[in-house]
Amino acid sequence: MRVTVLGASGAIGRLVVQQLLDYGHEVTALVRSPAKLALIHTHLTVVTGQLSDRDAVERAVSGTDAVISALGPSMKRSTTGREVTDGTRAVVKAMETEQVTRFIGLATPSLADPQDRPHWKHKVLPVMAGLMFPNALAELKGMTAAVTDSDLDYTIARITVPTNKPATGRIRSGFLGHDRIGSAMSRADIAAFLVSQLTDARYRRAMPAISN
């Protein structure tokens, strides 16, 4: 399968790229700085560019079977603007133009899925995020809406506390108030879940919460 990875040079994105290559997929990575990806492979194509670069986004998406986004907003309180939201909109537009329908990405339980039941995370996390990281929360809402308001065949995994612990292979997934989902999750397991969604149809057009 041909897979485009966004945010490929980030902590989760690099793991996604490596796992895809380990499984034998053809990977196209859109990155600002190829040096940060620090990976060379015969099945890896690197497209240099930013999300605001329409030509680079279209090159990265062209001919792909799916897009996996490990993008997330900056957690710096000084950050302003809607770079990730606008970039995600550009990706969605490019996917529609190239007739690529499968999108797999990330968000947090600060955003609810219609299949959730009332849960403390719906009340606590948005308040905390709004006070501590207001721009990041606005970006999460914007980038998620750009996908969920489209006709794309999406799965957006909601994570709470990513860690750098080794992969466990133990992944919980489901909807708040229905399923027993914790908070902490290793980035390696997050990457494994994202990659698994290429062939798993359980969460099509849904936003499952995931944890170890």
Results as ranks from 00 to 15, higher is better:
residue 103 F to I: 00
residue 111 L to F: 05
residue 116 D to R: 05
residue 111 L to Q: 06
residue 135 N to E: 11
residue 70 A to D: 01
residue 121 K to D: 08
residue 45 T to S: 12
residue 98 E to Q: 15
residue 203 Y to M: 00
residue 37 L to Q: 06
residue 121 K to N: 11
residue 5 V to M: 07
residue 48 T to Q: 14
residue 101 T to R: 08
residue 120 W to K: 04
residue 157 A to R: 08
residue 109 P to V: 00
residue 139 E to F: 06
residue 202 R to D: 10
residue 77 R to E: 08
residue 45 T to Y: 05
residue 154 Y to R: 00
residue 102 R to G: 00
residue 137 L to D: 06
residue 168 T to R: 13
residue 180 R to Y: 13
residue 100 V to T: 06
residue 115 Q to W: 11
residue 160 T to F: 11
residue 136 A to Y: 07
residue 208 P to N: 11
residue 44 L to E: 06
residue 119 H to W: 12
residue 26 E to T: 03
residue 169 G to N: 14
residue 89 R to E: 13
residue 72 G to N: 02
residue 175 F to C: 01
residue 61 V to S: 03
residue 161 V to Q: 14
residue 148 T to W: 05
residue 105 G to C: 12
residue 199 T to N: 10
residue 206 A to H: 12
residue 117 R to M: 11
residue 81 G to Q: 13
residue 73 P to K: 09
residue 7 G to R: 03
residue 113 D to I: 07
residue 18 Q to T: 15
residue 80 T to S: 14
residue 68 I to S: 06
residue 141 K to D: 06
residue 193 F to E: 07
residue 58 E to P: 03
residue 202 R to V: 02
residue 33 S to Y: 15
residue 197 Q to G: 04
residue 151 D to N: 14
residue 142 G to T: 00
residue 208 P to K: 01
residue 80 T to W: 09
residue 54 R to N: 14
residue 53 D to P: 12
residue 91 V to W: 01
residue 35 A to M: 14
residue 174 G to I: 09
residue 13 G to W: 07
residue 83 E to V: 08
residue 68 I to C: 05
residue 199 T to Q: 08
residue 46 V to C: 04
residue 147 V to R: 04
residue 97 T to N: 12
residue 7 G to Y: 10
residue 91 V to N: 02
residue 134 P to C: 07
residue 170 R to D: 13
residue 90 A to C: 06
residue 24 G to P: 12
residue 97 T to G: 09
residue 32 R to P: 10
residue 208 P to Q: 07
residue 149 D to K: 09
residue 17 V to F: 01
residue 32 R to F: 02
residue 184 A to G: 05
residue 59 R to D: 13
residue 158 R to W: 12
residue 106 L to Q: 05
residue 137 L to R: 12
residue 204 R to S: 02
residue 29 A to H: 14
residue 118 P to N: 08
residue 40 I to H: 15
residue 5 V to D: 04
residue 196 S to K: 15
residue 71 L to Q: 02
residue 78 S to H: 09
residue 139 E to H: 04
residue 203 Y to R: 03
residue 30 L to C: 10
residue 201 A to C: 11
residue 190 I to T: 13
residue 131 L to G: 03
residue 74 S to F: 09
residue 114 P to C: 04
residue 203 Y to V: 00
residue 62 S to G: 14
residue 172 R to V: 01
residue 207 M to P: 03
residue 182 G to L: 04
residue 31 V to A: 04
residue 116 D to M: 00
residue 48 T to V: 13
residue 54 R to M: 07
residue 161 V to W: 11
residue 27 V to K: 01
residue 2 R to L: 02
residue 81 G to F: 05
residue 108 T to F: 06
residue 96 E to Y: 01
residue 33 S to E: 15
residue 31 V to I: 06
